Computed example of a mutant assay.
Amino acid sequence: MQRPGRVREVFLAFLRLGVTSFGGPVAHLGYFRDDLVVRRKWMDDRAYADLVALCQFLPGPASSQVGFAMGLQRAGILGALAAFLAFTLPSAVLMVAFAGGAALLGGPVAAGVISGLQIVAVAIVAQAVGGMARTLAPDGPRAGIAVIGLALALLLPGAPGQLGALAVGVVGGLALLRRASEASSPAMPAFGVPRPVAVVCLVLFAVGLVGLPVLAGATGSGTVAFVDAFFRAGALVFGGGHVVLPLLQAGVVEPGWVSPEAFLAGYGAAQAVPGPLFTFSAYLGAVSLAGPGGVAGAAIALAAIFLPGFLLLTGVLPFWDAVRDRPRVRAAMRGTGAAVVGILGAALYAPVFTTAVTGPGSLLLAVVGFVLLTAFRMPAWAVVLVGAAGGVVLAFT
């Protein structure tokens, strides 16, 4: 699995992507295709499309999983790690810097900027809900699954509602969507993962998901609970990107580790940096009252949230061809996607809307941000700047 001569090539390619890839996971996949498939020809379009489909089916950060797998194929396990580090570190460093700066700033200007970041998060999440609904819940059965998922996530806050929504997605998909046909996909290229290694990765994923909450409860350790919150968010998020918002909110805001205001300010700032949105976890780790805080807390949170997705991807790669075209698997995948729309819709209401929109001015600014994103196609980082400026104006009116 080791190809040391190519590790540097992978690192530099993904470092360039890590500092230039704005726009969220869908945009990242476009950048990957342009640079790594079309220009560098690391794999062909059919293989790339199949890899993307696998990573979208699995929980975890889809674009980072695609990058991890491409680094794995190109230069073995060191290439996979190089791809992850190079693509992730630029935005993670910026988010930790924002965490430190936000704690030092004061006065009405700083308060206005933070308020503006919270408000613009309403527009960004609303756009994400609309786009995902059109793609993942375009018909009656899937729209119904999404509505039930929304109700469960609203009525049962935190992990119970989210897990219940995903369970409804699986059951509903198996019951209602099995008749939909899917064309067979071409075989993916070999990634060099031996089956024993894959099994170990799957076991580690299961041990982390089940064992960390048990260990946290048995020991009463705040650090273990801190790691568990981020590991669970990375292990249970389907769709990546904005969908991690409700899981992280349940993990760090509900226990009181991060205030709702600080949470949304960091989420807004995460829209203005390149690279994966999951680096929002670095900000949360840095400001959290649980865990070590600062740079150490950021590093632990970052590793914990990305690890389950990479373990699961590595564990599944050798077996995916054998199961991906089975009707039950396809149906469960479609049902889960629809449930994710409901979960994100619930997060749009609480905590995003209820925390950020406190009057007519903040509602107007949120609507302006939404129109700039959807009608004027303005990039998210530019809308974040508009939101920050608007927050300052509202602070002085």
Results as ranks from 00 to 15, higher is better:
residue 305 I to R: 00
residue 318 P to R: 09
residue 357 V to A: 09
residue 264 L to C: 10
residue 140 G to C: 03
residue 219 T to C: 12
residue 372 L to M: 14
residue 346 A to E: 06
residue 73 Q to R: 15
residue 299 A to W: 03
residue 107 G to S: 12
residue 42 W to R: 11
residue 8 R to C: 12
residue 112 G to S: 13
residue 348 L to H: 01
residue 3 R to M: 10
residue 264 L to Y: 09
residue 138 P to V: 05
residue 147 V to A: 12
residue 171 V to S: 04
residue 86 A to C: 08
residue 351 P to N: 07
residue 66 V to K: 12
residue 315 G to F: 04
residue 259 S to P: 09
residue 246 P to T: 10
residue 61 P to V: 10
residue 218 A to M: 14
residue 25 P to T: 10
residue 321 D to M: 08
residue 176 L to E: 06
residue 31 Y to R: 10
residue 165 A to Y: 01
residue 265 A to M: 07
residue 163 L to E: 00
residue 82 A to P: 06
residue 113 V to T: 04
residue 276 P to T: 11
residue 5 G to W: 09
residue 40 R to M: 11
residue 126 A to L: 15
residue 134 R to F: 01
residue 49 A to S: 10
residue 17 L to V: 03
residue 382 A to D: 04
residue 261 E to R: 14
residue 109 V to C: 06
residue 319 F to P: 02
residue 305 I to S: 00
residue 269 A to E: 10
residue 21 S to R: 11
residue 182 E to F: 15
residue 319 F to Y: 15
residue 351 P to A: 10
residue 110 A to Y: 09
residue 112 G to V: 10
residue 228 D to M: 05
residue 94 L to H: 02
residue 292 P to M: 11
residue 244 V to N: 09
residue 295 V to T: 13
residue 213 P to R: 00
residue 223 T to K: 01
residue 104 L to P: 03
residue 188 M to V: 08
residue 150 L to S: 07
residue 132 M to H: 06
residue 198 A to K: 03
residue 106 G to R: 02
residue 190 A to W: 11
residue 111 A to Y: 01
residue 85 L to M: 11
residue 379 P to C: 11
